[in-house]
């Protein structure tokens, strides 16, 4: 839990936390079959931060929803610690964009939402801890509508972390935030990740975001999505986003996706 900077050899020893084996997904729409995911194979180690990067509508969210247990794969399976995913489970929490907070509850109520099995005292304790972790002291009694987008997103992350899951699934969590808040939230998320070391699957369409955050970036193709390449981001945190290595990795992904890096 307390390891600070994971080095490559250390990680290689650890068994796969999440393994995605031959996952395909075919949706039926208006009698037509839409092939969304095509034979995805992927592993994430315990405590690893994996970004799934791809263009909008490529099926990366579908993959995350299958991993979360909200959708069934057409073929293939996803296992976590060797156990097949068969539905949603509090050990792995799905974080949506900030619209997922419950608007009828205070910040405290939201963060404590999943703690209904704990005794009152411990629940209070945990809530206080996570309010502090996400920097929302003084807003415990505030309702989501009184908060900014970034603060709502913090509430949602805190609500997820509070139940102490092994795995966090984040589905374009910062997509609705302005670009400055988004940058702040990225470093906040990294800070929380270093404190708690959850295994994270993070879906995004933002190349910079993926290179800033992830240990590995899984680059997906357009639909039907396949994995084009997996890029190891071997830069320690905090990352200098003007360093040659950062730019090199970023540009290689730009190239992979087939974008000329010019506006």
């Amino acid at each position: 839990m307390a390891q600070t900077a994971t080095t490559a050899p250390e990680r290689a020893v650890e068994a796969a936390k999440i393994s995605v084996r031959g996952v395909s997904k075919i949706f039926k729409r208006d009698g037509k079959e839409v092939n969304v995911l095509d034979n995805i194979n992927l592993e994430a180690r315990k405590g690893e931060f994996v970004c799934i990067l791809g263009p909008s509508g490529c099926g990366k969210s579908t993959l995350l929803n299958i991993a979360g247990g909200f959708l069934k794969a057409t073929t293939g399976s996803i296992t976590i610690d060797g156990e097949e995913v068969n539905g949603p489970d509090p050990r792995r929490i799905f974080v949506f964009q900030e619209r997922g907070v419950f608007p009828w509850m205070t910040v405290e109520g939201n963060i404590g939402f999943g703690l209904f099995k704990l005794p009152k005292e411990e629940r209070r304790h945990r809530i206080a801890h996570y309010v502090k972790l996400v920097g929302l002291e003084g807003f415990e009694q505030a309702y989501p509508q009184e908060l900014s987008g970034g603060m709502k997103q913090r509430v949602e992350v805190a609500r997820a972390l509070a139940v102490n899951p092994d795995v966090l699934y984040l589905d374009e969590p910062f997509g609705a935030l302005d670009s400055i808040t988004r940058l702040i939230m990225r470093s906040e998320l990294l800070r929380m990740w270093e404190a708690e070391r959850k295994t994270i699957l993070f879906v995004t369409h933002d190349i910079e975001e993926s290179v800033q955050l992830a240990d590995r970036v899984v680059v997906m193709s357009t639909r039907p999505a396949t994995i084009r390449r997996i890029v190891e981001i071997d830069i320690p945190h905090p990352r200098d986003i003007s360093s040659p290595r950062y730019l090199e990795l970023r540009d290689s992904i730009f190239e992979e996706i087939g974008l000329a890096h010019k506006v």
């Binding site: 979360g68 489970d89 509090p90 929490i93 799905f94 619209r99 997922g100 419950f102 209904f116």
Partner: peptide
């Protein structure tokens, strides 16, 4: 999304109704 969040945190159908659907 809200329904899923409730299910994700392990709520029973009755609790899901009381704590998510109704509010």
């Amino acid at each position: 999304m809200m329904r899923n969040a409730g299910v994700n945190f392990g709520l029973s159908p009755a609790a899901l109704f009381r704590r998510v659907i109704f509010p």
